[in-house]
Design a protein around this nucleic acid. Structure first.
Lengths: 222, 222
DNA sequence: CGCTGAATTGACGGACATCAAGATGTGTGG
DNA sequence: CCACACATCTTGATGTCCGTCAATTCAGCG
């Protein structure tokens, strides 16, 4: 059930050497492997930020809950992705496992101590946070677009990050997608079937998407 | 026309000592004061990131333009705010002056060189980028809300950052506000007059807002 | 005092949310 | 292996918030 194969693929983050994490040695001196069951919480908003994480297998969502119960998912993390990188002492979002997942956890205090020896560590933390900032900016761009554009953008993003050829296996349910895109599950569903009827995608299963006309999807991404 | 008084107010960023910028000594060894006229560009997206900036007087907007001409403003920077802090070699947004402005500019290469001597420099860069990330996350939260909630949130944010007592002097036009909130100027305008009729605010001038019922606005902020 | 861009106000339509029902898929126990 | 239960997903009907288009008012400036 747990997919270690995903962990042996190409790493998705920036420049080696990997001071923080090395996905090829998840059990090495750089951290501890933890297992989280589907829908279990990894950390909560405003909790003390004890660990930095990297996804080994499975998938993770980061989110905030508004007073009225609405949820906004700010990011999905897939194998290779690093998350929980707080500069402050508390997590600014909650995070939980979308599917049964293995993550590599490394103590924040250890990393910060390491930073006193090795100046490249903080440089790397800054760089990763900067990449996260760029991701959030791009998602904010999505949120001002039409439903079509948002769903198209989401499919292309997932294809870029998790695709084998043209088939995307979605780890998350429609509610997660809706909460990520700022839409309702009905609108997400309708938009997907509309894409299917237009021949842009195929939906052999609700969580499996085949991109048939990537150019058309790109055009929508405006 | 240029308001130096604003620069002598309390600094708005985090913990001293200010390695990067010291707003009390804008002409000191930490940078160069530059002047930008209203609507002039400070830097463009994908340009080489030559400088880090801090606003001394005036106001700055950062934004991206979509293919179809839509503009999304990702942030407003007021006196004391630092912007243009790129970890990569290029700016990821454009920035220009909303009003005639003075900014303190410090060469990115100088700061990065300084970072080899003083380890607190990168730590500070990381911290500032992390704060920027938190700001963008909060704006993304705004974008999934109703027009009322977005405008209320905007007013409270501006009041917190730029208010003298309960009066907010807005440096930007309705189009800027609209592009920041993902609304149209008509909706922004209508929502403001609606707030006025409900007694939540007063609008003695189109760019001057007096908060009359902060509690009610806060309640909308959900 | 007239010109011009900014802001407001109104009428209307459309995209997406809401409410509701039905279809599909999945896990569990007999 | 089948049957039932429950969650997930899809599809339909209706409503509403906000965008669009258009006209008017207001403010700043030569």
């Amino acid at each position: 059930m747990l997919n270690y194969a995903a962990a042996t693929g190409p790493a998705r983050f920036a420049a080696p050497p990997y001071v923080l994490f090395n996905i090829d040695e998840p059990r090495g001196p750089t951290g501890t492997v933890m297992r989280f069951a589907r829908n279990s919480e990894i950390y909560g908003e405003d909790e003390a930020a004890e660990y930095f994480y990297q996804v080994i297998s499975g998938a993770v969502r980061a989110y905030k809950i508004l007073d009225d119960g609405r949820r906004q998912i700010s990011a999905f993390y897939l194998p290779g992705d690093i998350f929980g990188l707080e500069a402050g002492d508390e997590y600014t979002s909650s995070a939980d496992a979308i599917a049964d997942s293995h993550v590599n956890a490394i103590k924040r205090s250890t990393v910060l101590a390491q930073a006193d020896q090795d100046r490249s560590v903080v440089r790397q933390l800054w760089s990763l946070t900067s990449q996260e900032l760029a991701r959030v900016q791009n998602r904010a761009l999505l949120l001002i677009k039409t439903a079509e554009e948002r769903v198209a953008g989401f499919l292309l993003e997932m294809a870029r990050r998790a695709a084998t050829a043209t088939t995307v296996q979605l780890p998350m349910c429609r509610r997660d997608i809706a909460d990520y895109l700022g839409l309702t599950i009905e609108t997400v569903s309708r938009t997907l079937t509309q894409f299917e009827h237009a021949g842009l995608i195929a939906l052999p299963a609700s969580r499996r998407v085949e991109l048939r006309d990537r150019a058309a999807l790109n055009r929508m991404n405006s």
